[in-house]
Amino acid sequence: MKIGLKCRLALVFGLIALLGTSAWAGGGSQAEKSDKITLGMVSIDVNDSGNARAINGATARAKELGWDVITIDAHGNADEANSAIQNLALRGTQIIIDLVFPVTSLGSGLRAAEQSGAVVGTWGGGLGSTVAVTNGSGGLLAEPIVAQMVKDLGGKGSILALTYHTGQVARERELVLDSVLKDYPDIKVTKNEVRIPGYLQDGAEFASAWLAAHPRGSEPLAIWGSWDDPALGAIASMKQQGRDDVKVYGQNGNIDAIVAVESGWMTATAWEASEEEGKVLVDTLKQALEAGKSWTPKAAEVPAVVVSTQNVADFIRQHPEAAGR
């Protein structure tokens, strides 16, 4: 990174040994038993920018390694995700990545993966008893954004929080929000749950109603999205109503969010190096596959950067691709 880091994203890598007849329980590695490795990825939403960038990074690294790649969109539905993982396991996919779905929602899928001997990783889904490795952002990415929002509000006012409980990352970020705001009784929070698909429309509709109940000049106001896109939907309603008095905060730092910060409509977002995270995840899963039973937990860090109206120009100069330039 060429710019100073304002937050660091901890990526925790670990193994909980798989049981049964899988390669993890045997003496050799699965990599030694297969001439061609297939990577299967099950995404909560392939159209989400963060998911898409992580998938692109993982795909690029897998192709460099000569692997086949299968990507499945589960449309925000845990049942679809479980079915997808089961199908991947049945066809002998050696490495499976879950993107964002909490491992607690993937019981049947993970059991099928365990029985097939597949190595499973998650991007933002956490660790479970059959998951060999995880990375991705959660609460750590939210901390600097929530802190800045509270500071910008002066410790008082009202916030519209656009939440999403199906995704592990969004849950963790909401927990950070709740934890910080416990110390600020003068900040009132309205929570609305968005859907996948439909987060842009939901963000716009919830914001429209909230803005009507919170007129200009009434108090300090902010909108917080558990990731960028719901907040971008809210900005659409702000533009329609001519409301430039509300501060807006996102997380992930997709192209539209960086451009919104540049134009002044979004106050800040945390840019996540999702493509790099995808590459790191594949590299670590490869190591786990080759190591077999000897695999030991690992930790690594991929940097994240808070991009605000104060530093966005410098950020874009150093990372033009983050703004689609």
Rank of each mutant, 00 (worst) to 15 (best):
D228F: 06
F101G: 10
G28H: 11
A84T: 13
S22E: 03
A31V: 01
Q148N: 03
G121N: 09
T269L: 03
A234N: 10
E80S: 13
I235D: 10
T21Q: 13
L160M: 05
K191Q: 08
G57I: 00
T163M: 09
I258S: 02
V189G: 02
L9S: 14
M1R: 12
L18I: 09
D35G: 15
D228W: 05
W271N: 12
T59V: 08
T134M: 12
A313F: 02
A231M: 08
V259P: 00
G126R: 07
D186L: 02
R216G: 02
S129V: 07
L232V: 11
G40T: 07
E276K: 15
R195P: 04
H214E: 11
Q168D: 09
K6A: 07
F101Q: 06
K36C: 03
S263A: 12
C7D: 13
G125M: 11
D45W: 12
T59M: 03
G40C: 06
N51T: 11
G233N: 14
V133L: 10
L19Y: 04
A300G: 01
A273P: 12
M238L: 14
V307K: 03
E321C: 00
D283W: 00
L162K: 10
Q201C: 00
S294N: 15
R171I: 15
G76S: 07
R53M: 11
V302Y: 01
P297W: 04
L88D: 01
K151D: 12
V246W: 04
V246F: 08
K2Q: 14
T71L: 04
L18C: 08
L9E: 14
